[in-house]
Amino acid sequence: RQGFVPAAYVKKLDSGTGKELVLALYDYQEKSPREVTMKKGDILTLLNSTNKDWWKVEVN
């Protein structure tokens, strides 16, 4: 499932696989259909980080 999360809630990881991955630093509950819920410690695939406030991710 793809959607947006606050950029301040995730940290980029060095995956070494060519995929950009991020680590969820905090729990986040989606507040609109365009967002996704994540739990602290989740590893997500980063799809787009051009917006400084909201990053598009895919929940694996």
Rank of each mutant, 00 (worst) to 15 (best):
G18F: 08
L23I: 15
Y9P: 00
T50I: 08
I43K: 05
K52Q: 11
L25R: 05
K19C: 11
G16R: 07
K56A: 08
V10Q: 01
L13H: 06
T17Y: 14
P33I: 10
Q29I: 14
K52M: 11
E35N: 05
A7R: 11
L25S: 02
F4G: 01
E58R: 09
L21D: 03
K52R: 12
D42M: 11
A7V: 06
K11F: 09
L13N: 03
K31V: 08
A24R: 00
S15T: 15
L47V: 11
W54D: 02
D42K: 02
G16I: 13
D27E: 05
Y26K: 15
W54I: 03
S49F: 07
T37E: 04
N60D: 12
Y9M: 12
L47A: 02
Y9H: 06
K19A: 11
L23A: 06
V59W: 09
K12Q: 08
P6K: 03
D42C: 06
L46H: 01
K12G: 04
V5C: 04
A24E: 00
E35R: 04
T50W: 08
K12M: 10
A8D: 09
E35Y: 05
G16T: 14
K52I: 10
S32Y: 06
T50R: 10
E30Q: 13
V57S: 00
N48K: 07
E20P: 14
W55N: 01
Q2K: 10
N51R: 10
L23R: 09
G16H: 14
K40W: 04
G3H: 02
K19Q: 12
A8R: 15
Q2P: 05
K40D: 03
K52W: 06
Q2S: 11
K52L: 10
F4R: 03
G16P: 15
E35S: 07
L23M: 14
E35K: 05
G16F: 11
V22G: 13
L13R: 03
L25G: 02
L25F: 03
Y9T: 06
K39A: 08
L23T: 07
Q2W: 09
Q2L: 06
Y28N: 01
V36P: 02
V36R: 02
D27N: 08
V22I: 07
L21S: 08
P6S: 02
K39T: 09
G18R: 10
L23Q: 13
R1G: 07
Y28K: 00
V5E: 01
E30D: 05
N48M: 07
K40R: 12
K19V: 13
A24W: 01
K56H: 11
I43Y: 06
L23D: 01
L25H: 02
E20V: 13
N51M: 09
P33Q: 08
K11M: 15
G41T: 02
P33S: 11
L13D: 03
Y26T: 08
Y9G: 06
K11R: 14
E30W: 06
K40P: 03
D53M: 14
K11N: 06
S32A: 08
Y26R: 15
W55R: 00
S15H: 12
Y28T: 00
D42N: 06
S15W: 15
V22S: 03
V57P: 00
L47S: 02
M38C: 06
T17D: 14
